[in-house]
Design a protein around this nucleic acid. Sequence first.
RNA 1: GGCGGCAUCGCCAAGUGGUAAGGCAGAGGACUGCAAAUCCUUCAUCCUCGGUUCGAAUCCGAGUGCCGCCUCCA
Length: 472
Amino acid sequence: MVLKIYNTLTRRKEEFIPLKEGEVGMYVCGPTVYNYIHIGNARPFITFEVVRRFLKFKGYKVKYIQNLTDIDDKMINKAKELKITVLELAEKFIQEYFIDADSLNIEKADIHPRATEHIKEIIELIKGLEEKGYAYEIDGDVFFDVSKFKGYGKLSGQNIEELKEGARVEVDERKKESIDFALWKRMKEGEPSWESPWGKGRPGWHIECSAMSMKYLGKSFDIHTGGSDLIFPHHENEIAQSEAYTNQQFVRYWMHNGYLCLNNQKMSKSLGNIMKVRDISQKYKGEIIRYFILSAHYRSPLNFNEEQLQQAESSLQRLNNTIFNVKHLLKQGKFRKSKDKNDKVILEKRKENEQKFIEAMDDDFNTPVALSWLFSFAREVNIYLNFPSTKNKEVLEKILKFYQELAGEILGIMKVFDQEESFEQEIKKLIEGREEARKKRNWVESDQIRDKLKEKGILLEDTPEGVRWKKR
RNA sequence: GGCGGCAUCGCCAAGUGGUAAGGCAGAGGACUGCAAAUCCUUCAUCCUCGGUUCGAAUCCGAGUGCCGCCUCCA
């Protein structure tokens, strides 16, 4: 089966063919570390991490780079506000970022390069552009000359003339054209700066991603991703800088996710309508938040509200119940060696559902459809479990493996083998006491014990194979 | 002004020409001492109006509503 990816550059779904067979180079625009991330920031991080996980599942060796922007206007302003250095600010929020990412089961990238640690590469790049005539310096500022780069606007579908007319920002009068953008910014009093051929200063925003992505992935690489708001100008400018410099295609597949909205408005720090990951994760597990994000296709807009999270929790509960019930049977330890018709049927269903799941993911990472096959299989498993017969151990394990691989390793929405319920002695005793009472048909006492356990967050379920208990 | 997206059951959300996946919530039933979990049954004709077609949620046109980018922004 072939993987198809929607490429912003061509506005079409295309078959994914990596530059080098079996290997994928991927660059993800990461956070600017001046504050806690919000759930809107988390959307691309989760989405594209799933892309990475799925590529790995398909057997690709993936090199995954996510940058940390640790120098720009926002960093400088925030540091001033807090009366600390930009470096101190960066250190703090890089740590906080990883705490949040961890709470969302987001695995670390292979490399998390920081802009301030790549000043040398950035200067090199700007120097090259200047030599080739794509950049010009004015009083210590260096700008990219957009008019020199043919193809400017190919990613965002803008044409240069329209952009010039549409410019609504106050324009730096020294620039040749309003759409020229800064590669290097002259130092201002009290701001961090680095030595350069143009005097002291700091890099512009777009140049860091060009410098770092090419350093780690090569002049031309496979996948570059980010939120849709980065298409213009950020990624458009990255293309211009990089391709002007190397004379070859910068990125083959551009992927952009839709916005996450709050009350149908784009969640953004400047609007102030944000929900911090830190706050949400106090109340909802990472798996639930991931489920919520993955329940819509990544390119669609997604509206955030708490009801959605609660629905996600209930939905996920259904899947967890199923694997929980399978694990209960495994713990009972009574198995049959041979396989009967039911065993064969469920193994067949397992294969079918796995294929459907992969098919959905192959179709531009259609996670909502992929999820539906997880539910479809859960129903089959529940029917299988309901059938009154001793089960085959290998079959039960294969069912768990299905969820471990697809829901666990690829989507990161379940922890199949991770829920080690420590069997506290006290609980065990209470359950035994209740069994005694039930044998005597003393329902009042047995219900009291069950209620008592419920208060402790332990739920009891009576089954033909004995009492089953779980937390929450 | 330029470029782009969205509108499908109470809620979420797939489906891009062949007669509406899945989940949450709801209703009825089975199982249970009662529950829980589970199973079975049930639950929409796709914003409006025109058009193309044997056939459209899906294509075209015109509307309506909402959102985004063009400026820092995931």
